[in-house]
Design a protein around this nucleic acid. Structure first.
Lengths: 324, 324
DNA sequence: CTGAAAGCGCTAACAG
DNA sequence: CTGTTAGCGCTTTCAG
């Protein structure tokens, strides 16, 4: 910047003003500075600028698994909101590893990010609350974190699951299997609660032997479904806790052409190409990401109202059977 | 850091040494410094550290569309490689907009990233070559950029398409439709070349009226396929240039149960759940991302051998018909 | 093995 | 409207 100042015959500060678009500079000087910048190929160093000014124009996005289409949509939405405001996004995937998450969060704060959007991985989020107390703006995404007094943007997991199961019950199903991932994942326990609420509301008892949990991937879900198909009074319907489980269940049901109605949480690519009609709990993942990003940017720009939790609504959609 | 130094009764420099794990410090002092750091809740400022030292521990990933599962897998792979080396990743999506890409690239270099992995969007990549000349390490991903003298990691698009079409020809198909996105996208023109090479090798003339291009989404692909099904001598097979096109073609073929063999580039989620068997050109997207990241890190750490292009191999896989 | 001083590239504060 | 001076938080000399 000194070189530019010398070349343009002005002071360092004037160059700084021109770069920052300060209005109160003689147009003729602005011209000269711009010419020098172009000639010398000057490029400002944002890090140095931020060091003195204390401004933060980067936010961090810490997701559980960047390869999951759900987080991908969110990454895109956050990125889109940020770029509009000339803010860059530092992204990292924790792979559901709490230790890695802590390292990433710490690393990001050391880079003085303006704020963090976090999908919390572990049950113990004291570290996150500590960061928040240190002054890092935090928005929780998809999952709340007990003990962390921050904004959260969540899906209406309970309502979505309740609606889905209520519909099956209304259609006359009485033996409904419920396949879930680990209940230590907040979304899963919420979806289970929602499903159970529907059972209770219909006065139907939950059949424990039809409820299977801890399915992390399609394969175990397929295996569990295969077993359920073989039992004496097999279920006539299944509610799947997420898209991986839905896919696994279909891997068991479709080849056997088993007479089981399929409903699941989350939409997935090409679900509409299935030969059999299914029902899915869909939601606007883009809205989820956007909302979180906007909330964070609001906090960064000074909003200090009490933390609030926003719920993204769900709706049941038809997929498969080439419906369009 | 000054506070820590005062608290521990040592000099600033000693604190710096302890933080950076310099061996030659009296263990007793190290102890005292660590205690003070913990008591004061000191957190080092990475940006300030990098300012003086000139070190770069961030890389940038500029993709065309973060919501596409392809780029997502890559994002995950890059992120995984980076985190192993304590490097953070700045990510942004250009949405195939060359102007936005230029802004993002510039913005990232101003943040003094150590290097950039770029999926180039426009045909004109002079700006990228300029950045490279300024000293930013650049690795091109998925697409080469004419005039940019940098490493590239690409899929063997030509070979994959050639193999796919050759297989159809070997199976006796003579009327093979070819559905593609815009040929201005490098991967598409390469895939077209590969397909045409297979036709030439088999001595079969390409039938122009069966070749349709510029399909950006499933919908136009479906419409095109519907038209092709209606013509007098309809194709007996179709080669689709990417997964969106394959999905669109299937939207036309499946409901009509049209007797058309389907082969396409790219795998997609739940492809194995289709009621009809299809063939897909698959490749290791994770490897693609890893390779690019490793190449970039090698460059950053001083590798100055001539730029080289790496090709990721493809292979044909069965999907659908519940094959597993 | 330790520390004082200079300086990374820029902006804030305060004159003029 | 323009310039001077200090200083962001750390690392790099270089001298003890």
């Amino acid at each position: 910047m000194v070189d530019v100042a010398v070349d343009a015959g002005v002071s360092l500060k004037t160059v700084s003003r021109v770069i920052n678009g300060v209005r109160t500079v003689d147009p003729e000087m602005v011209e000269r500075v711009h010419a020098s910048i172009a000639r010398l190929g000057f490029r400002r160093n944002t890090m140095a600028a931020n060091l003195r000014s204390g401004s933060r124009d980067t936010i961090g996005l810490v997701t559980a698994d960047l390869s999951n289409t759900f987080y991908t949509t969110i990454a895109r939405a956050v990125s889109a909101v940020a770029i509009e405001q000339n803010i860059q996004v530092l992204m990292a995937s924790t792979d559901e590893d709490p230790a890695l998450e802590q390292r990433i969060v710490r690393d990001m704060t050391e880079r003085s990010v303006g704020g963090l959007i976090v999908v919390p991985s572990g049950p113990d989020q004291d570290a996150l609350e500590l960061e928040r107390r240190r002054g890092t703006a935090i928005v929780l995404l998809d999952r709340p974190a007990p003990g962390v007094n921050a904004d959260a943007v969540l899906i209406d997991n309970r309502g979505g699951a309740r609606d889905a199961v209520a519909e099956l019950l209304a259609a006359g199903h009485r033996r409904i299997a419920v396949l879930l991932d680990s209940l230590s994942i907040h979304t899963m326990s919420e979806r289970r609660e929602g499903a159970f609420e529907a059972f209770a509301a219909a006065g139907v008892a939950v059949q424990d032997h039809l409820v299977v949990t801890d399915m992390h991937a399609p394969d175990p879900a397929r295996a569990a479904m295969e077993k359920l198909i073989e039992i004496d009074d097999p279920p006539t319907a299944v509610f799947c806790g997420n898209n991986r489980i839905t896919i696994g269940a279909l891997e068991a049901i479709l080849p056997r052409n088993a007479p089981i109605a399929v409903t699941g949480f989350d939409d997935f690519e090409a679900a509409h190409l299935l030969s059999r009609g299914i029902r899915l709990v869909d939601y606007d993942a883009d809205l989820l990401g956007r909302t979180a990003a906007q909330q964070l940017l609001a906090r960064i720009t000074g909003d200090d109202s009490p933390p609030r939790t926003t719920y993204i609504p769900t709706r049941l959609v038809d997929r498969g059977s080439f419906d369009r």
